[in-house]
Every structure is written in structure tokens, then in C-alpha cells.
């Protein structure tokens, strides 16, 4: 997967006081004295036993992965669902009011956010929305640090307000990072479907314009966007890395960033595997949804 050419023991070796024997032992612990294919095979065979190996500080990777995964997935899945709803609604609205003020407003907004890097959106919301707001009310309304308060305890319901305070901004940030291109796509998909022959036939049947929109235009225009959603899911995970950094979330993204900068092989591999599996899963889901929405594929 990745030919690892960086040396995790670089800092150790640079220290003249480290006895060569220590380096040898550490190298052996990390299997660095073995060949690359051997190491890869070793890692790979461990996977089948659910073993992700140890990180550089000799802690097992697996529990860390699952711990951080929970934090990240909560945010990503919520943002994904909300972004899809927002993008589809705005896309439809924009297409129906084509050329009008609303359409132009939506188009401008989508372009604006398309051009804004995730970290700029995140920082802006953090410094110029959350912090002034909290200052104004003299208490924490929108949290900007971490996925929850360090001291929070009790049942899930009890912690919900606290979680929500921590959730809101990162989720909004992620939504703003992805909804634009989906809105643009949905708009053009609707416009394209509107002019199709079968929509003309549906209209010529004498069914109400609302029904034409819901059952014939929207239903058909949703099919192509599924591919886009599945493909962009990878980008959403990338956005999560940045969002977690901005809001100091202890999620997978930051865990991975730390792992990558320490050249922690097993952490990085575990994260890459996780994202790959997630993206593939989403593409599978997309295929299933495709079959569900489009009978031409179902029968193939």
C-alpha cells in the first residue's frame, strides 16, 4: 500500500547519547529489521485476527481506532445526511426558480462556499461566531474545543445539550464544505430531467404539476446524484480531518495526523484501511440504492 521510506526512529538516532543497542532493540520491536514485503504480510495477516498491531508507544491500535471512529463517524454521518437534504432542496428550488433572484442567490452562495477552504469556514465560525456569542451571553453556547466537555458524565440524554454545543459548529463546517457541489449538480440534474420526453408525456397526461415534479422529475433526477454522493464521500472524510483540527476534536482525523507526522506505521495503515473500507461501503450502498431507484439496473 504505502512504501514507507521515512524512519520513525530518526529522532532517536539523531540523539548521540542513545546507545546503538537500544536502537537495535527498538528496530526489532517494530520489525524494522525485516524486509518490506514481510512487514506488510505480517500486518496483513494480523488483520484477519482483528489485530491492527501496536503503535509507536506500544499501545494496541485497535481500541484507539474504535474510540476515535465513534467520535468522527457521529460528525461525518450527521453532516452527510443534513448536507444531502440541504443540497437536494436547494438544488430543486434553484432549478424551479431558474433565472430568478432565488436561483441567483443560491448559485452565488454555492460558488462562494465551493471556493472557501474548509479550514477558513471552520476558523471563521469559531472565531467570529462562537467566541463572540459565548462572550456576549457570558457562558458557553457553542463550544469550540473537543467533541464534549472533559468533565461531562451521566446518561446520554443528560449529556445531550453539551454534546450538541460541541457538535453544532463542526457539523455546520462540514456541511458547508460539501453541500455546494451537490447543490449545483442537483440543480442541473433537475433542469436536465425537466426537459426529458417522459416528463412531457407525464404532463400531457393531465396530472398535477406537483405530482409531475415529485413523481417524475425529482424521482428520476435523484438517480445520477447518488454516484456523486458516493464519490464525494472520500472528500468528506478529508474535510473531517481538517474540521477536527480546527475544533481540536479527538477524532480519527487528528489521530491519523498525529500518526502520520510521527511516521507511525500501524496507525496510518489502520486509518487508510478504515477510510478505504468506508468509501467502498458507501459505493456499495450507492449501487444498492441505484438498483432500488432504477429498474434498468435491477434487472441486469
Amino acid at each position: 500500500m504505502v512504501a514507507y521510506s521515512g524512519d520513525p526512529l530518526f529522532p532517536l538516532k539523531m540523539n548521540p547519547l542513545t546507545p546503538p543497542a537500544t536502537i537495535k532493540i527498538r528496530e526489532h520491536d517494530l520489525f524494522l529489521d525485516h524486509s518490506l514485503p514481510w512487514r506488510y504480510w505480517h500486518w496483513f495477516s494480523g488483520l484477519f485476527h482483528g489485530n491492527f498491531g501496536l503503535d509507536l508507544s506500544n499501545n494496541p491500535v485497535r481500541p484507539q481506532l474504535f474510540l476515535h471512529m465513534g467520535v468522527t463517524l457521529r460528525m461525518v454521518v450527521l453532516a452527510f445526511v443534513l448536507a444531502v437534504i440541504i443540497a437536494v432542496s436547494l438544488g430543486v428550488l434553484s432549478a424551479l426558480k431558474r433565472g430568478g433572484l432565488i436561483d441567483r442567490g443560491i448559485t452565488f452562495t454555492t460558488f462562494f462556499f465551493l471556493a472557501t477552504p474548509v479550514f477558513v469556514t471552520g476558523l471563521f465560525l469559531k472565531f467570529y461566531l462562537a467566541i463572540p456569542l459565548d462572550k456576549y451571553f457570558g457562558r458557553q453556547i457553542l463550544a469550540t474545543n473537543g467533541a464534549q466537555s472533559p468533565l461531562a458524565s451521566g446518561s446520554f440524554l443528560h449529556r445531550l445539550p453539551d454534546l450538541a454545543a460541541h457538535f453544532t459548529l463542526p457539523t455546520i463546517t462540514l456541511i458547508l464544505a460539501v453541500f455546494s457541489s451537490w447543490t449545483i449538480y442537483q440543480r442541473s440534474s433537475i433542469l436536465e430531467t425537466m426537459n426529458m420526453d417522459h416528463v412531457m408525456l407525464a404532463r400531457s397526461k393531465g396530472i398535477s404539476p406537483r405530482r409531475v415534479l415529485r413523481r417524475h422529475i425529482l424521482r428520476n433526477a435523484l438517480i445520477p446524484i447518488i454516484t456523486v454522493l458516493a464519490l464525494d464521500f472520500a472528500g468528506l472524510l478529508g474535510g473531517a480531518v481538517v474540521t477536527e483540527t480546527v475544533y481540536s476534536w479527538n477524532g480519527l482525523g487528528r489521530w491519523f495526523l498525529g500518526g502520520a507526522s510521527n511516521i507511525d506505521l500501524n496507525v496510518t495503515l489502520a486509518y487508510l484501511l478504515f477510510t478505504a473500507v468506508l468509501v467502498i461501503m458507501f459505493n456499495l450502498l450507492a449501487d444498492i440504492a441505484y438498483g432500488f431507484l432504477d429498474p434498468r439496473i435491477r434487472y441486469r
Binding site: H198, L201, N220, P295, R296
Partner: peptide
Amino acid sequence: AMIFQDPMTSLNPVYT
């Protein structure tokens, strides 16, 4: 009522 030119595209592909 109207009958359109191209029957390949004038029926909605997703409904029976």
C-alpha cells in the same frame, strides 16, 4: 392528449 415522436424516451424508465 399527445403521442410523442420517440417511444424509446417518452415513457418514464423507473415505473412499470
